[in-house]
Write a protein that binds this DNA or RNA. Structure first.
Length: 411
RNA sequence: GCCGGGGUAGGGUAGAGGUUAUCCUGUGGCCCUGUGGAGGCUACGAUCCGAGUUCGAUUCUCGGUCCCGGCCCCA
């Protein structure tokens, strides 16, 4: 009987893993240079943490379980809630703004398809404690910088929920939720039907449709005509000015309407081509979640990047380090081990572990695509040197260990 | 949860209701104990699972499962 990997999970082979961790570190370097600190939260949490945030309805999409103490638990489906929980538990009195990032696996019980797995990785950022325009702008610019650093070209769309909420303030809360869902899905026919059904005013209808069809970078004046000069727009305008200074390319879209109540103002999404039905590679915005978890009234802004989708379209290749294979004979094998120990301080070194003969060791070096073979034979040891063979050109020269390290490192 | 297309060695494939199920590649060993990539020999290695039809099923039928894509959902 063979046991297969669970549905929706993946094995990452050595080459995949090397590339993934390379790209991951490119992204890490960007966020670190923006002054963000990495955190790690538990792989599983109390089920309540997520039902509190997203409602009981998400249980169907969670990998939840009851532990041996009878507690309802779940593998984490995302990291914003855990980070907020961590904040409330341990970080409330730390200096603001608090700038955190994470790179972790998440689990969702969903039907796998292109760009969607049951175990997937999220790279995310949370900026806690500031609701100022500059903070919103920094988070957007950081997402933009991270995507650029890994060579992903996407379309950045920015919106602000205050606009559509102002427009809809005369409607019942549950109607507002329905409207926002339809807006987000761009189902305009259903939207019109719903508005007629609830007897919305003509003015509201025409404004709403105008609003969600507005596109581009310079549509704010027309938005103001509809909702007036609400204070949120002043801040939003400032955010956009900062983004211009950062040189971020974006377009505005007030049809981004994440239905969940804790999104308060700015929202943004990045879409990329080449991903089939799952085009969104990044989503974020400003939100209020901390009160929900028992903390104070602390504004936050954050985003999550779907790392697996990034890997699908990211053009970066892993620059493999130069690799050596030491080739020895039975008489020189122990000496080769001593030499390997020294060389390994600088370079990846392979040694024969299968008692192969000279020729087979060289053949192994070829098979694994080693860059160099280092021959540790009697002749070399007598001379106090080693033969370095370039596996590509076949050229050989007699060198000291130091010369080998120097030559290989600089090639 | 729903719809469509698939599943033959580690990877890629061919075939056929019937004797030992192809071929390529891979990996180990040998030819070959100080010079790899070629070649030869050799070993390893597969019909997704279950039920049904049949004298006989890997092939046909049904169910399951997994993979791929789409819908729904997307915190």
């Amino acid at each position: 009987m063979t046991v297969n990997r669970p549905r929706g999970t993946r094995d990452f082979l050595p080459a995949d893993t090397a590339r993934r961790s390379y790209v991951e570190n490119v992204m890490r370097n960007v966020v670190r240079n923006w002054g963000y600190s990495e955190i790690i939260t538990p792989t599983f949490e109390h089920l309540d943490l997520f039902t509190l945030k997203s409602g009981e309805g998400i249980i169907g999409e969670l990998y939840n379980f009851t532990d041996k103490g009878g507690r309802d638990m779940t593998l984490r489906p995302e990291l914003t809630a855990p980070v907020m929980r961590m904040y409330v538990n341990e970080l409330q009195s730390s200096p603001k703004p608090l700038k955190l990032f994470y790179f972790e696996n998440c689990f969702r019980y969903e039907r796998p398809q292109k760009g969607r797995f049951r175990e997937f990785w999220q790279f995310g950022v949370e900026l806690i404690g500031s609701g100022k325009p500059d903070s919103d702008a920094e988070v957007i610019a950081l997402a933009d910088a991270m995507l650029k650093a890994v060579g992903v070209k996407g379309e950045m769309k920015i919106g602000n929920l205050a606009v559509i909420r102002t427009l809809l303030k005369g409607l019942e809360p549950e109607i507002v939720s329905k409207v926002m869902r339809l807006v987000d899905k761009k189902e305009y026919a259903d939207l019109e039907a719903l508005l007629d059904e609830v007897g919305a005013e003509e003015q509201l209808k025409s404004d709403l449709f105008r609003l969600i069809k507005l596109e581009g970078r310079y549509i704010l004046p027309r938005v103001k005509e509809m909702v007036g000069n609400i204070p949120e727009l002043a801040g939003f305008e400032k955010t956009l000015k900062v983004l211009d200074a950062y040189g971020v390319d974006y377009s505005l879209d007030f049809g981004i309407a994440r239905g969940l109540d804790y999104y308060t103002g700015m929202v943004f999404e990045v879409y990329a081509e080449g991903l089939g039905a799952q085009k969104q590679v990044c989503g974020g915005g400003s939100y209020q979640l901390i009160q929900l978890f028992g903390g104070g009234d602390v504004p936050s802004t954050g985003f999550g990047i779907g790392f697996d989708r990034i890997m699908e379209i990211c053009p970066l290749e892993y620059p493999a380090p130069k690799t050596l294979v030491l080739i020895s004979k039975p008489e020189t094998h122990l000496e080769a081990i001593k030499i390997a120990a020294k060389l390994r301080k600088y370079l990846p070194v392979h040694l024969d572990l299968m008692e192969r003969n000279f020729k087979a060791q060289l053949s192994y070096a070829n098979t694994i695509n080693a860059d160099y073979a280092v021959i540790v034979g009697e002749k070399e040891l007598e001379a106090g040197k080693l033969t370095l063979r370039d596996m590509l050109s076949g050229e050989q020269e007699l060198l000291t260990q130091e010369e080998i390290i120097e030559k290989v490192s600089s090639s």
